[in-house]
């Protein structure tokens, strides 16, 4: 009778995992990248601090990998269960719903590619740091894919923040949902700016 591991539990966990830890990590990651705008040395200092955290593998596994994998695979499953109807219903929220799923798929493939090119290559012996990213984004096609990937991930996170507040029953009144709609749009612009400026700093 609604006890134990219900769909309610898994879906709310999915919702939470998108914000904590995945969304928080995304924000932190973009801020760290921004240090590249201060020059190669600043970025390398910031990233080596991250690289040398104690129990790094445990942190990576439990703060990033497992929550992200859970969110992503469950997210794909959820997205495939929706039947988008933006052609019939042109409401703003319906477009947001559509883009939430579209950007989820983009983020899915982008994250796999990005992890393959960076974290996995480091395991194979490549040296992490500014020059690694510089080599990647000096290819214009890669740069464009990075821009799409970053903006998609940011959209997905900031719009997801808005739906998270509803999924958990925090924003109930239409007025509070409207207020947080503006905050979510503001966060989208801000984080996109930080992400885009950072990636251009590597070019």
């Amino acid at each position: 009778m609604g006890q134990g591991l219900t769909e309610n539990f898994w879906r709310k966990l999915h919702s939470l995992s998108g914000v904590i830890p995945v969304g928080v990590f995304l924000t932190f990651h973009l801020f760290l990248n921004y240090s590249a705008t201060w020059g190669e040395a600043s970025y390398n200092a910031a990233s080596s601090f991250m690289m040398n955290l104690p129990f790094k593998i445990v942190l990576e596994l439990f703060v990033i990998f497992i929550p992200l994998a859970f969110h992503a695979f469950y997210g794909v499953y959820l997205a495939l269960k929706s039947k988008n109807n933006v052609n019939r219903y042109h409401f703003f929220r319906n477009w947001s719903f559509f883009f939430q799923r579209l950007t989820g798929f983009i983020a899915f493939f982008f994250v796999i590619w990005h992890v393959w090119e960076t974290r996995v290559q480091v395991t194979f012996g490549s040296e992490a740091g500014f020059s690694m990213m510089h080599d990647i984004v000096s290819n214009p096609i890669s740069l464009i894919l990075y821009l799409i990937g970053i903006v998609s991930a940011v959209y997905h996170f900031t719009n997801g923040l808005w739906t998270f507040l509803i999924t958990w029953g925090i924003t109930v009144s239409p007025q509070s949902q409207k207020t947080f709609q503006y905050i979510s749009i503001g966060a989208f612009i801000l984080l996109s700016f930080i992400g885009i400026r950072a990636i251009f700093a590597f070019v």
């Binding site: 769909e7 709310k12 929706s82 109807n85 409401f91 929220r93 319906n94 719903f97």
Partner: peptide, 10 residues
């Protein structure tokens, strides 16, 4: 149930 809603607000 309720969590099958995806907040499209249509």
């Amino acid at each position: 149930g309720i969590t099958a809603c995806g907040n499209s607000q249509n």
